[in-house]
Amino acid sequence: MKVTVKSWHAIAQWRWDTGSNSTEDEEGDVCGICRVAFEGCCPSCKVPGDDCPLIWGECSHVFHMHCLLKWIGTAASKQQCPMDRRPWATAERKVNK
């Protein structure tokens, strides 16, 4: 017996590769600033995904980019990561992961 797949229409969900390797967790992580899931979008966006990307800090914290930029833009932020108060530095993304 030989089985050939002619075509396959599948359904998949995308998710951000946040480095936390827990593919199993159901809810996924939320942005530390707006408390909306990463796969959702920040309060000022309407469309998730590439239009509302994430930003990785060297401190390993991840936020919606728009959320973080807004935070950094305020004087009170002192250019610090809102989670650990270390100076914010955007991490280079490792592409081949």
């Binding site: 017996m1 089985v3 050939t4 797949v5 599948a10 359904i11 995308w14 998710r15 993304r93």
Partner: peptide
């Protein structure tokens, strides 16, 4: 997909969708 969108991953919903199969029996 990952090569195309490096910071995203796919997780499949295996139960959904349709597959068109050709089955060659004897």
């Amino acid at each position: 997909f990952v090569a195309f969108k490096p910071d995203k991953k796919l997780s499949w919903l295996p139960l959904l969708g349709t597959v068109k199969l050709e089955i060659e029996l004897d």
